[in-house]
Design a protein around this nucleic acid. Sequence first.
DNA 1: CAGATAAGTGGACACTGTGTCCACATCATA
DNA 2: TATGATGTGGACACAGTGTCCACTTATCTG
Lengths: 191, 191
Amino acid sequence: MERADAARNRARILEAAALLFAERSPQDVTMDDIAKKAGVGRGTLYRRYPDRASIAVALLDEHERDLQERLLRGEPPLGPGAPPAERLAAFYAAMVRLLEDHSHLVLGAEVGRSRFETGAYGFWRAHVRALLSAAGTPDPDALVEILLAPLAPEVYEYQRTVLGLTPEQIAQTLARLTAVLGRSQAERGQE
Amino acid sequence: MERADAARNRARILEAAALLFAERSPQDVTMDDIAKKAGVGRGTLYRRYPDRASIAVALLDEHERDLQERLLRGEPPLGPGAPPAERLAAFYAAMVRLLEDHSHLVLGAEVGRSRFETGAYGFWRAHVRALLSAAGTPDPDALVEILLAPLAPEVYEYQRTVLGLTPEQIAQTLARLTAVLGRSQAERGQE
DNA sequence: CAGATAAGTGGACACTGTGTCCACATCATA
DNA sequence: TATGATGTGGACACAGTGTCCACTTATCTG
C-alpha cells in the first residue's frame, strides 16, 4: 500500500512534469528540472520514474485508456459494429485527435523505437490487426506496422509544423490508406 | 582546397566510424570512441563532424546517391518508363534493400525527426510526390509523408528483429500500399 | 499514545559524454 | 627555407544521469 507522502509526491511530480512538457520541448526538460519544480529530491523522482519517458507515459495513460475503451465498447464507427474500413478510418481520426491534443507528451514518451514497447502501442497493434483480419486482408501481421507507422509522433509533428498541414487534412489522408483493405475486399468479391 | 593531413584524417575517421557502427548500436558509440579508434584528437573530429549523425550521413551518402541515380536514369521499373504504381513498388523494394544493407548506419544517422531534414529524405520525398502526381492522385503532398513513414529505420528494424519478418515480406507488404494510387486511377477511369 | 519498523526522502557524489578552446604542429606556397 | 594559413590534439568546463545512504515521516502495534 502506498504511503500518504508518497502519493502526494507522485501527484506533484506528474503535475510539474505536465507543466514543463507543455512549455518547452521534452528533450529540454531534465529530470532535475522536474524534481525542482515538484519540490522533491532527485532520489524521490528516480524511485518511481527511471526516466523522462516513463513520466510521459504515465501522463498519457489516462487519455489512451479512454480511447481504448471507446474502441472496445464505444459507438460505431469507432467501436464495434461498423465495417472494418470505416472503423480503421475512425481509428485514424481518433489517433490524430490524440496526437494533436497531446503531441508534446507523446514526443516525450516515445524516443525512437521505445514506442513499440509500450502497452498502448500493443493495443493499437492488436486493434488494427483485428480489423484487417475481419476484412479478410491477407498477411495482416506484416501490414499492421505499415499502417501504424504514419502515426509516429515525429511524422505527425513534421506534417503539422513544417509542412503546415491541418489535422483534418492528415486524418483525411490517412483514411485513404483504407484502400488497402478495400481493394482486397473487392478482389474477394470477384472470386 | 583540403590539406593532405586533413584528407588523411577524414578517411581515418570515416573508416573508424564504419567499424564501430557495424559492431555495436550507434547510440553506444561516443564521439570519443571514434576519435580514439581513428587515432585523432577530439578537436579534429569535431572540426568536420559536429555529431554522430553527420558522420553516419557521410557514410550513407554514396549508397544513397547510387539509388538516386538509378531512380532518375536507371532501368524501369525503378527508373523512368514504368507506370507510377510499379515504380513506387520498385522504389519500396530498393529502399528495403538499402535499409537491410545499412540499417545500422541509417539508425545512426537518423535520430527521430532529424531524418526529415536530410537531403536524401528530400529526394525520396520529391520522387514519391512526382509518382503520385503522374498517377493523378489528389492531394499528393499530404500523402507523401504517409507513404514514406513505414520506411523509418526504427520501424524497419522492429519488423526485422522483433517481429521476425523477412525483407521480402516487408517489401511485398509495402507494395500493397500502391493500392492507394491504384484505386484513384480506377476512379478516374469511371469519370 | 509511545515505540518500533518499514517506507519514503533529498541532496551530495561519482561518472560519462559533450563541445570549446588554444598552444602547438604541419602543410602549401614563394 | 621562411612564412602564414590551416589543421591538430588533448585539457577543460559543463551539463545531465543515476546511485547511495543518513535522515525523516507515516503507519502499525501493544
